[in-house]
Amino acid sequence: MTGAPPRIVLAKLGFDGHDRGLKIVARILRDAGMEVVYLGLRQTPEGVAAVAEQEDADAVGISMHNASHLTLGPAMVEALRALGLATPVVVGGIVPADDAETLRAAGVAAVLGPGASAPEVVAAVRRVAVPDDG
């Protein structure tokens, strides 16, 4: 059957304590017709990967606002691959252009800056999160 909504796992990695941005993204994706598994704050790449496996997620969206994206972004990709999952990773947050390149080189599927509009967020997630019809 076609038309199943994309399933997105959304989490914030690391230890800082604001989830306002993540909640807004969850709402944006929901209102665009996606199913969002909301994990909230203080998650680890390994924990999120285990959830993505159980939820058969079509994409993982992560944010972190403490300049740790260069370690946590690639770590998220690696944690998924370690489970044999090809799930695309979208990174959101304050990421300088150079770093965005580095993240993409490390296998991150898309990077969204803090200024990304709702349609931009939706478009980026839609582009990478294609429910496979296997």
Binding site: R30, Y38, V51
Partner: peptide, 30 residues
């Protein structure tokens, strides 16, 4: 619940099981 308007959903149950779910199989469903 899924939104009747958009078909989207925020599946927020498992965040409350955080820390206890290790080893269990937890699946969210809209």
């Amino acid at each position: 619940p899924s939104s009747p308007l958009t078909g989207g959903a925020i599946l927020g149950d498992r965040v409350r099981m955080d820390g206890f779910a290790a080893g269990a199989f937890v699946r969210s469903m809209a």
